[in-house]
Design a protein around this nucleic acid. Sequence first.
DNA 1: GAACATATTGGTAATGATTACTATTTCTAA
DNA 2: TTAGAAATAGTAATCATTACCAATATGTTC
Lengths: 143, 143
Amino acid sequence: MVILEELKKVASHPAADELYELVRRRLPRVSLGTVYRNLELLCESGMVRKLEYGGSQRRYDGDATHHYHLRCVSCGRVEDAPIKPVSEIEESLRKMSDYEIIGHHVEFVGICPECKRKAPRTATQTKRALRKEKKHGTERITN
Amino acid sequence: MVILEELKKVASHPAADELYELVRRRLPRVSLGTVYRNLELLCESGMVRKLEYGGSQRRYDGDATHHYHLRCVSCGRVEDAPIKPVSEIEESLRKMSDYEIIGHHVEFVGICPECKRKAPRTATQTKRALRKEKKHGTERITN
DNA sequence: GAACATATTGGTAATGATTACTATTTCTAA
DNA sequence: TTAGAAATAGTAATCATTACCAATATGTTC
């Protein structure tokens, strides 16, 4: 319950170790394994979504309703994209494919306002950042 | 060059170790490290795309043009989705967000015809599979 | 409430994909 | 050919995640 509460509190889609730190403030004796284990259970029960886009760590989302994400290639933060999902796209794919379509996920990549301000980039720098960020999201929790 | 050629030959979006096996048929002395290193270089030069959707392994795509993917939750295979990308979606997000939008990726999830045939699933089974498949894509190269 | 069965946890070890490292090999150009 | 630079093979290190297990907590029955 604490894990779920803390996850719902933040908008940052934290990775397991980040959430572990948050939970530890309330339950100083929890173990990282417990966090992983219960995140898995919460995912299975459909209350939490596991995000597996770029980067070396998975992120967790306390909002399990269908929505898209927006990732900053510069600092690595992931936010909810402020547009509503277009489910019609699944319909159009159904017409073209023999797959039984279950769902779809969308990730936008871009540069967040803060990073734009901090370090306006040339196109080349942006491309380089876009490559780098694959390795590991740079920024951690700020919430 | 051999790495790129082999990658372009297959439609299966292989993981590094799968591609390693393919390359080894032509260059029996290559090391896995060389495959990783050159895949990285090919990605940086824009000739290869790294796919970081679900599963524990990254996949590589010899087609770097913008397109969507379709993953079977049952066997883990990843194919190109036979619909063209809708770039307008980036426009609509630009109106709603202060991010500088660079691009977007879409992954559809579903059940491939073969898996549908092999093992028609109840809704519950499908959900369970959909959870499981996050852990590790089941099927490997068949090409 | 005591006695027992069951479930969950903490702590640590194992796993596995990726990256880093380094001695050796291969290329390059004068 | 030969010195210097670049790439490679093979192996070690890294790090997120998972597995394991003894210990603890929780629940249940009488």
